[in-house]
Design a protein around this nucleic acid. Structure first.
Lengths: 130, 130
DNA sequence: TTTGACCTTGCCACGGTGGTAAGCCGAACA
DNA sequence: TGTTCGGCTTACCACCGTGGCAAGGTCAAA
């Protein structure tokens, strides 16, 4: 099948399939005589896996390792777990950062009258020593 | 004072000060005869405000509006509040996304033995219909 | 044969920040 | 006075992941 079919069957855009190929995340596809990329059912598996891993927020570099482990029948689940743990730690860090921002802003917003007057704790905080 | 002093007094890197100037977020600074940027105490206020707003996760575009409102004595606090609210909503959206990723991964990780065996629910989920 | 949909590669863009290179400038020191 | 070193200038490239666009080749149906 052609790239757009592979794209619609996996949810990965044709653009991204080409990109993943160019960075070596997926193998170079077969080509037709005229140079069109050709995909078989097997190829879709990897794309679907990448799609799901991206959905869980893994970076392409992490996905590269995950794909490699996936294709290694002698893998240790400990290796997979380590990648997942690192990603969870990263997610927690980002969640904590965003939550802190949100909490501060929620507090400031609550104290802002939100009317036609200029006085505003949000601006005041940003402008002074907040 | 020169740019590196302004940088160290505000915590905004010289690189970023130039960038903010180039995108019109801050006014073009005065220049010495030889072309060096010159900053006065007044200029630092804006940089400090940008620094704090970035720390709260506002985008540079939002900051552009905030700075504009800040410098407008006839501003309505409602306008400031609206920007903050929009940002809070965005933060909440991102927090929810990341939390969902983390929860799913935490679940999978918990069920992964993490030993030398290949079997692993994380890989399985990524590879199949997860 | 024409047409329209598809494919190819290659470049530019986003946001925000860092790096690096080439060249000018300023101050201190011999 | 001349050298030297650090700071300043602009301009470009990189990250990450994705989208868009343009110029040109290809395929299938009408």
């Amino acid at each position: 099948m052609n790239i757009s079919q592979a794209a619609s069957l996996t949810g990965v855009s044709a653009k991204m399939i080409r990109h993943y190929e160019s960075i070596g995340l997926i193998r170079k596809s077969a080509r037709s005589v005229s140079g069109y990329r050709i995909y078989r059912e097997d190829d879709l598996q990897v794309l679907r896996m990448i799609k799901r891993a991206r959905h869980l927020g893994f970076s392409l570099e992490q996905i590269r390792e995950l794909v490699s482990l996936w294709q290694d029948p002698a893998r240790a689940s400990a290796d997979v777990k380590a990648i997942a743990r690192a990603h969870i730690a990263d997610l927690n860090r980002r969640i904590a950062e965003l939550s802190e921002m949100r909490d501060i802003l929620a507090q400031l917003t609550q104290n802002c009258s939100g009317d036609a007057m200029p006085d505003c704790p949000i601006i005041d905080t940003l402008a002074s020593s907040g």
